[in-house]
Design a protein around this nucleic acid. Structure first.
Length: 571
DNA sequence: GTACTGGGCCAC
DNA sequence: AAACGTGGCCCAGTAC
């Protein structure tokens, strides 16, 4: 029955939103038309028996008018839809948005923020975790359609009644489109040549050894290290053993870090550093990684949108955010296709300039290389100094050269520095800070509080005070960085969302696909003939992101774009 | 056996 | 030269 009712309604009252939830034996949906929204209502929910029915329903609505799909967890429903060949233009991920709105300072007075903890505060449900029993009245952790409707309503109210509804609304959309993108990238995967990767490994490590054995080159280097230190049984993978052996050999080191060893003059250094480099390659991105993470010529990154406190994405397995530069040439475009690799030059300082509306820094942003311009303005002498000074401003560096360069930055860009300095002071006062769109930093944890309280106790000694001060400064560095890193993450989400819409509008076959994201960098795998259009889409999307987040601010956010056959050639 | 921590190094 | 922010992941070592 669902189909005929649905078709009639589709033709006459287009839904602007459709609520979706799993039920005990299928799915439930409820359409919300513009006319319903005013009254806070929705069409009577109806049931869809299985995934195929849901996919048909979604596809029909996407063809007709692309409503916004409102569901609890993109990770729960969207991978299955993608598996049916169905994608959606817009969605709201209630779980991700709930987490943001619960602690958002600008929505602190809302009913949503004041409510006791609920299942919405828990982790997202995944499609394959805890398969629901038929006996369950209601699968654990899976909100009903009524729950979805109530939560969506509570979120709308929290945003509308907040101190910054426009920003929170944009943040909600950006976070939600990020969830769609993460699922889509996981689905399509990053083109990955196992042949090229295997060749790299064999050249560096020798032929692939049996499981549990060191590759020949690593084994040879381990033997050289043992001989040079005179410790035949040494396990070079054990930092403790290695440190003791180095000290017994007369090397005055207090760790086995590469930087501490690099300049020492001893026969062990060269084979040891080579061992460390290759052991890392073998362990993190070796044959085992290739077996586990690459299939059908694609690496399927498992992103976790909003997985980092600042709003950056995290990953769960596979290390998609740490692909070493040395193996990137294994990312190879398929025949007839090309990779369009784009990143933003110095995104974070540009965000800072716009947030603070610092005229001098916005002016410096006009140049493609912000650091070069800082030199040209006579603030510092070299590009490297400009970079160190700027990073010190955003990370809270104080020691040595960074401290002195920071003082120069403070004189040249007083507005920008005042913003991050104030964020740091707020952190030291235990206060929470906000990104530009309103993501709020977490409060310090219990352990943090207890250390601070100890410093105020009657019997507190100098060590307690020292520890509390040091911890306070540490939290200040966190909040200082939070506002900048978090705002950069928001800009990146807006950029990716705007890019995604443009790519979807390009009706070519095969379609250009967003296949990789790395904080402020994206890769689009596109037909070679479409490379120019994709480059244009990237720039237009960046301009849209700027307009969305900083309307009226004259901020330049230049992209660096490369059209390449493999990722190793980019950058 | 599993869970956690620290060392080290990869990315931004 | 390393330091300073956010992380992941692998290994060794230890605690349960």
């Amino acid at each position: 029955m669902g189909v005929s009712v649905d078709s009639a309604r589709l033709a006459t009252v287009p839904a602007v939103e459709v609520l979706v939830a799993r039920s005990t034996d299928g799915f439930e949906v409820a359409e919300v038309a513009e006319v319903d929204r005013a009254g806070g209502g929705a069409a009577a929910p109806h049931r869809l028996a299985d995934l195929a029915a849901l996919a048909d329903f979604v596809a029909a609505h996407e063809r007709a008018h692309r409503p916004r799909w409102v569901w609890a967890d993109t990770t729960d429903l969207y991978p299955e839809l993608l598996g049916c060949g169905v994608s959606v233009e817009r969605a709201t991920d209630l779980r991700l948005c709930h987490r943001i709105l619960r602690v958002a300072r600008s929505a602190a007075g809302s009913a949503l923020a004041g409510a006791p903890a609920s299942p919405w505060d828990e982790s997202p449900s995944l499609p394959d975790d805890r398969p629901p029993s038929l006996l369950d009245e209601r699968p654990l952790g899976r909100p009903t359609l009524a729950d979805v409707a109530a939560e969506a309503d509570a979120q709308e109210r929290a945003v509308a009644g907040s101190a910054a509804p426009g920003r929170l609304r944009l943040l909600r959309r950006a976070e939600s489109v990020g969830a769609l993108i993460a699922a889509e990238i996981h689905h399509v995967g990053l083109p990955w040549s196992a042949t090229v990767h295997d060749r790299q490994l064999t050249e560096a490590l020798g032929p692939r050894p049996p499981a549990g054995h060191r590759p020949p080159v690593l084994q040879g280097l381990a033997d050289e290290v043992r001989a040079a230190l005179g410790v035949p049984q040494l396990n070079p993978d054990s930092p403790g053993e290695l440190l003791r052996a180095l000290r017994r050999a007369g090397l005055d080191v207090r760790s086995t870090r590469r930087h501490e060893l690099a300049d020492l003059d001893h026969p062990v250094i060269e084979p040891l550093l080579a061992y460390k480099r290759l052991a890392r390659l073998h362990a993190a991105n070796g044959w085992a990684w290739l077996d586990t993470w690459v299939s059908g010529g694609r690496f399927h990154p498992d992103y976790v949108p909003g997985g980092v406190v600042t709003g950056r994405w995290a990953t769960r397995g596979g290390g998609a955010l740490q692909i070493p530069k040395s193996v990137r040439s294994a990312v190879v475009a398929e025949p007839g296709m090309t990779l369009v690799v784009a990143d933003v030059a110095q995104l974070e300082p540009r965000m800072l300039a716009a947030m603070a509306a610092d005229p001098a820094m916005l002016d410096a942003c006009r140049h493609v290389d912000l650091y070069d311009d800082v030199v040209a303005r006579g603030v510092v002498a070299t590009r490297q100094q400009a970079k160190i000074g700027m990073l010190a401003a955003m990370y809270g560096g104080t020691t040595g050269e960074a401290g002195e360069l920071l003082a120069r930055m403070r004189r040249a860009f007083p507005g920008a520095l005042a913003l991050v300095d104030e964020a740091a002071r707020a952190g030291e006062r235990f206060e929470q800070v906000e990104t530009w769109l309103g993501r709020t930093s977490p409060p310090p944890g219990d352990r943090w509080q207890s250390i601070q309280q100890r410093a105020y106790a009657d019997d507190a000694d100098e060590r307690d005070h020292q520890r509390a001060r040091s911890q306070g400064r540490g939290w200040g560095r966190f909040t200082r960085n939070f506002v900048v890193q978090g705002t950069a993450a928001e800009w990146a989400l807006c950029w990716m969302g705007a890019l995604r819409r443009r790519l979807r509008a390009m009706t070519v076959s095969p379609p250009p696909e967003l296949v990789y994201v790395l904080h402020d960098e994206v890769i689009v795998h596109a037909p070679t003939a479409q490379a120019g259009a994709v480059v244009a889409a990237l720039h237009d999307a960046a301009d849209e992101a700027r307009r969305l987040m900083f309307p009226g601010v004259d901020l330049a956010v230049p992209l660096s774009v490369d059209v390449v056959d493999d990722y190793g050639q980019a950058g």
